[in-house]
Design a binder for these strands. Structure first.
Lengths: 252, 252
DNA sequence: CCAAAAGTGTTGTATATACACCCATGA
DNA sequence: TCATGGGTGTATATACAACACTTTTGG
């Protein structure tokens, strides 16, 4: 890398911000951290940080994800689903006024994770928590006394874009399995769709659909009764990444 | 904007690169410019340039598009189709080694344009031309004696991502009309799909499909025989931006 | 036994495909 | 008249929605 010569180009700060989604208690939740520094001190924000000088964008996002959640991720250059979290680039935000301190371009990434124990705070954040995306996107509309202030910076917009991406992508890909543990039942997968889309699906038709799509699910052999009722077969995510025909999202 | 203090963050150069696609002579083509400077001097590259210090990313892309093609574009914050070109953010590329001179993060944008007269060279490019994407993505596989050297930097990858985005997006949106002039026939729209996907579609079923989707096409009243044969109705793009049910891309 | 969740079968309706067929123009 | 592209009708296959029904556990 040749030495930096600021006369040749305008200098920007480049950061990565993370939209980390999971399904908890039948609701789609996002990871937010409390800001310890000005601006927006004390407000909730998406986790993120500066990209280092010798680091690829996807590597920076994977590093932040580990720091915040302990989750490992696949190389985001090749989107994949498996034991770790799914990680992919979302979009880039560069409004000149989005950070009052300096000119920052943020490359947002989207991560999908199974239900995790407890978030661990990292970096300059005082604390971290999982918050239902409904509360974050529509602050004030929830129950009284809740922490419902708007997210810092333009993070509400970034979160909305990430949620929209996840909602549309589980329609035609096997990405919903990224919200599940390594082994899961058809019913658990259906509850993921229901939580992400905010709908109820017919259990019988859903079962036929997902088990009838070749390569989507592979039986792992075991069964479980952890949801009660009749024992359910356990599955792992199959090799198929694209669903054809897609899952149909019911009309609103 | 507070004064720049390089001690607080690593300084990056931020550029926009453009994947400008059009349909010419029944082939999907991209706009490329010949590089006048080192590195990759004399090689073909995607048009692009530095983002200015007070400029939004979408504004920078729209400015480059005007400089290179004379096309105006809608605010890419709100993707829209109409008289000007369609412009939307594609993805961001930030490999530390992608530019040998310095650390550059490039925010690539995708533009779709109707068939244009002749590209006009701008900036530091010696010349500009429309090239079939097949020739650019598979250099050496074409006819002998062609200019078929690989694109500069990581632009082949960016172009491939842009083409893939266009191919999948015309499936479920009305974006294909961005490749057409303001008034067009159903047959002309079908030839767009055929060129972008590299397939042949049944004219009768295609006609029923697009005219039967409410809001996709609105008749302009006139007719034309510019394709020969029986006069065809002229249409404009309607208000619908999402196609439900989608156009089905035939298996390969 | 009952409740709860898993899984199967059946049927009406919608949509896609394939293709026969007719229409309106230029040469 | 013929060639060319535009446009309509119709049969067959496929896929989905709805829902009755059976299976297998825990309490």
């Amino acid at each position: 890398m040749p030495p930096y010569d600021p006369s040749t180009f305008p200098p920007f700060a480049v950061t990565v911000d993370l939209v980390v989604l999971t399904v908890r208690r039948h609701a789609l939740c996002a990871l937010v951290v409390r800001r310890g520094e000005t601006p927006f001190q004390g407000r909730w924000a998406l986790p993120g940080g500066f990209v280092r000088m010798d680091e690829d964008l996807g590597s920076a996002a994977a590093r932040e994800l580990v720091e915040e959640t302990g989750l490992s991720a696949h190389d985001p250059a090749k989107p994949a689903v498996g034991n770790g979290a799914h990680l992919e680039q979302l979009a880039t935000y560069g409004d000149p006024a989005r950070d009052p301190r300096m000119r920052v371009v943020s490359v947002a990434h989207l991560a999908l994770a199974p239900d995790l124990p407890a978030p661990r705070a990292g970096g300059d954040a005082n604390s971290a928590r999982w918050a239902p995306v409904e509360d974050l996107l529509h602050p004030g509309a929830g129950r009284e006394g809740e922490q419902a202030a708007a997210l810092a910076f333009d993070h509400a917009r970034i979160l909305a874009d990430g949620v929209e991406r996840a909602r549309s992508k589980i329609e035609y890909s096997s990405l919903a399995t990224a919200f599940c543990p390594p082994e899961f039942t058809v019913g658990e997968l259906r509850r993921v769709y229901e939580a992400v889309w905010g709908v109820v699906l017919d259990p019988r038709n859903f079962h036929r659909k997902v088990t009838g799509t070749p390569g989507f699910l592979v039986p792992s052999g075991g069964t479980t009764t952890r949801q009660g009722g009749r024992p359910a077969q356990l599955f792992r995510a199959g090799a198929a990444t694209v669903l054809n025909p897609p899952m149909l999202r019911p009309e609103v």
